[in-house]
Write a protein that binds this DNA or RNA. Structure first.
Lengths: 106, 106
DNA sequence: ACATTATTTCTATAATTATGGAAATATAGA
DNA sequence: TCTATATTTCCATAATTATAGAAATAATGT
């Protein structure tokens, strides 16, 4: 993780629609949801949703898997865990055991 | 924590200069650093630095404390801990014990 | 091949945000 | 009060990003 990657991830989540998509997928881990189902639940037009899902994929926050005509999107926890660790790096002088546990062990 | 607050915090950190300021302050918790010292270390012009420090303060990510002519900025871990918890809310069906430890106990 | 459903790409418009110099404000010591 | 140092506010310019309709692409069943 470096500054550039961290900014990419943070910028990706710093948008209402994408943040809600991400949280919805966190709550439906590890199976994920089809794109259309996400759009229905969050009331996002298909083209807008597609744009945001691509951003989330590029940032490494979600994974896409095709299954017949549906594309299932699911959370990729690696990026978010690394981001939290990066933000807290050497926290408080690097005293061990206090900081930087992973956000999720899923 | 709600979507709006989370987006504010994420957008605040989704900027190279602010991310570096935040990380520098994390590494100098809990004492903090004077504004001028931050600018010197990260090579950021005073007016630009002031703009970014204000954004970080508004988002609740840092605290400012005046001490004679210096203003010491330090990390406020409350916002970042709440943000991580919000992102991971009901992770994996809400199975307890796996997710959402605080990012830092400082 | 055709029709249906799912998703993406293209496109123009609108809105937001970062930058840093110059001037203003604040604090403290001589 | 004068001077030096620290920080902020103001401002115009530049750059980035979100939106959603229309058209294009993809997959499946008839």
């Amino acid at each position: 993780m470096n500054t550039h990657d961290a900014v990419t991830i943070l910028a990706c989540l710093a948008q209402e629609a994408r943040l809600e998509i991400f949280r919805l997928l966190v709550q439906h881990s590890p199976e994920g949801l089809a794109a259309g189902e996400i759009g229905k639940r969050l009331n996002i037009p298909a083209s807008t949703l597609s744009f945001h899902l691509k951003e989330l994929s590029h940032a490494g926050l979600v994974r896409a898997e095709q299954s017949s005509r549906f594309i299932y999107y699911s959370t990729d926890f690696k990026a978010i865990n690394e981001l939290v660790a990066y933000l807290m790096e050497n926290c408080c002088g690097g005293e061990p055991g206090k900081c930087v546990p992973p956000a999720c062990n899923c």
